[in-house]
Nucleic acid binder design. Structure first.
Length: 495
RNA sequence: GGUCCUGUGGCCGAGUGGUUAGGCAGAGCUCUGCAAAAGCUUCCACAGCGGUUCGAAUCCGCUCGGGACCUCCA
């Protein structure tokens, strides 16, 4: 079964056929670095990280572009036009660019914690003002934008007369003309549904650039169109982002690009669903965000403990990316325990020696494992169903543990299958799902622990349980778990 | 108000019309110096009502509930 991707544009799963195989261009809307990233932001970047990893696994050469929005947007309707970033900067008494730099670094740090791969290109909005202006000029020339008082607006009604405005989001223009609420500058627009391509900057506005229409700053949606076109071409393979960007952001991107490049910019539009908290979308406007730094530290009223980045990554991958995912501390605890179990199984598997080279791989156990492994690609090919992949991996864990503990005889499983199992788990857990061990150790620490293991072994062999228990109990207080294995060895892990 | 999505066991969640999803939690057993872990077994389910069908969590209708977007938003 070939890879199928749910395309938001056609509202169905479609076979993935790149425009220029083996090359794949993927654009994902990146963060606005006017504040700290929260749990909800983690989802698209982890989701599309897995998309990137899987496409790479399939042999595609992916150019992954993810922007940094460092030029402001409007903050709230009804207020004076304010650049989000310069506004916050005033409050914090720093330069806008200082703020941008700070939150960009913080974002990069968080992405590193999540073990996401870097985009090939990470363009900034402020670094592409020229491209955005050029694009706006093209739209004006084509007659689909008009200038009013130094601002430029896209003429949605005119566009809709000859193009399908709303094809992505399912909006109907007539409805939009009625329901769009009053934004600043509304009286400048010909129609309510029109959106700004360029905004004239009020005097107090710090972030401003010269343009043919006077000093100002780029509008809501033009940056993504300009940068995607520059680095991926007029038409590229995948455009991703959160579902909340579907309208008006992505719909408007399509309109802009259509006028400039005369094609639908992306072949496949992918949208991840939201993370909810008590059933409500996590977002600034709901005042219910948990920042990533708070997740990692556990310092937040809704958190019972700290959660590692890998726990969060695993938590997100346990759900299909198009479903909402409901956050709770309890669910995170469950995810943490699950990941620990899965990873220990994986570590145990690596230690099992391949011995039965002559054994055929057609007994029941071999068949069961091979079929579980066969399904992994099928699940991923079915619109990246990581939840099912994880379920299968969990089904393999008891088999691994049983072999390790001698419950399943070692001479039952063929070397061929065992080898395949090791390869597949490494590829899937590490390369595709991008998971890592919860515990991070170093050589010195490992050496010290080995010493304690040796001392405890000696004590046990002398039936000096006082000493052996002391070692185990005191380590437990430090968060290190020591376990006696069935084969007489002692294992440990630090959480 | 408009458009769309959704309702699965104590919790999180996957589900292509007929088979145990999976994880966490609970119960029992085995193993064990003790413990933990592990293994085995097990309890708990498809919002409600009706329809289609030999058969529905899965399709259709209605009712009730939840959510997203329509405004910057992952």
């Amino acid at each position: 079964m070939p890879l199928k991707i749910y395309n938001s544009l056609t509202r169905q799963k479609e076979k993935f056929i790149p425009i220029n195989p083996p090359y794949v261009g993927m654009y994902v809307c990146g963060p606005t670095v006017s504040g700290e990233s929260h749990l909800g932001h983690a989802r698209p970047y982890i989701t599309f990280d897995v998309v990137l990893r899987y496409l790479t696994y399939l042999g595609y050469k992916v150019r992954y572009v993810r922007n940094i929005t460092d030029a402001g947007h409007f903050e709230e309707e009804g207020r004076e036009a304010e650049d989000k970033i310069s506004k916050k900067a005033l409050l914090e008494k720093v330069e806008p660019m200082e703020l941008v730099h700070k939150y960009t670094n913080l974002f990069h740090w968080a992405m590193k914690q999540f073990n996401t791969l870097d985009p090939n290109i990470e363009p900034t909005a402020t670094g592409h003002i020229v491209e955005q202006i050029n694009m706006i000029e093209k739209i004006i020339e084509a007659g689909f934008a008009y200038v009013v008082n130094g601002s430029v607006y896209f003429d949605v009604k005119k566009y809709a007369a000859t193009h399908n405005y709303g094809e992505l989001s399912g909006r109907v223009l007539d409805d939009l003309l009625e329901t769009t609420r009053a934004l600043e500058g509304q009286d400048e627009k010909r129609n309510k549904a029109d959106f700004a391509l360029w905004k004239s900057a009020p005097q107090q506005h710090i972030m401003r650039w010269k343009s043919p229409w006077g000093e100002g700053f780029p509008g809501w949606h033009i940056e993504c169109s300009a940068m995607a076109t520059k680095y991926l071409g007029a038409r590229f393979d995948i455009h991703g982002g959160g579902m909340d960007l579907l309208f008006p952001h992505h719909e408007s991107e399509i309109a802009q690009s259509f006028i400039c490049n005369h094609v639908q910019p992306a072949k496949y539009w992918m949208h991840n669903n939201m993370i909810t908290i008590n059933g409500k979308k996590m977002g600034k406007s709901y005042n219910n965000v948990i920042k990533l730094t708070e997740m990692f530290s556990g310092i937040h009223p809704l958190l019972t403990q700290a959660f590692s980045p890998m726990t969060i990554r695993f938590f997100i991958l346990q759900t299909h990316y198009r479903s909402t995912l409901d956050f709770s501390s309890e669910a995170l605890v469950a995810a943490e325990k699950g990941l620990k179990r899965l990873w220990e199984g994986y570590e145990n598997l690596k230690k099992i020696k391949e011995e039965n080279f002559d054994l055929p791989d057609d007994n029941d156990l071999d068949k069961k494992i091979n079929s579980l492994l066969d399904e992994l690609d099928e699940f991923m090919n079915d619109d990246f169903n990581t939840a099912k992949v994880l379920a299968n991996l969990f089904e393999i864990v008891p088999v691994i543990n049983s072999i390790k503990d001698g419950i399943i005889e070692k001479n039952v499983l063929s070397s061929k299958t065992l080898h395949r199992m090791k390869d597949a788990l490494t590829v899937y857990l590490e390369n595709i799902l991008g998971l890592q061990s919860l515990s991070q150790n170093n050589e010195t620490f490992d050496g010290v622990m080995q010493l304690l293991v040796d001392i405890r072994k000696e004590a046990k062999s002398k039936k000096d349980f006082f000493t052996s228990d002391k070692i185990r109990n005191q380590l437990a207080e430090l968060g290190i778990e020591m376990k006696d294995e069935k084969d007489g060895n002692i294992s440990w892990n630090a959480v």
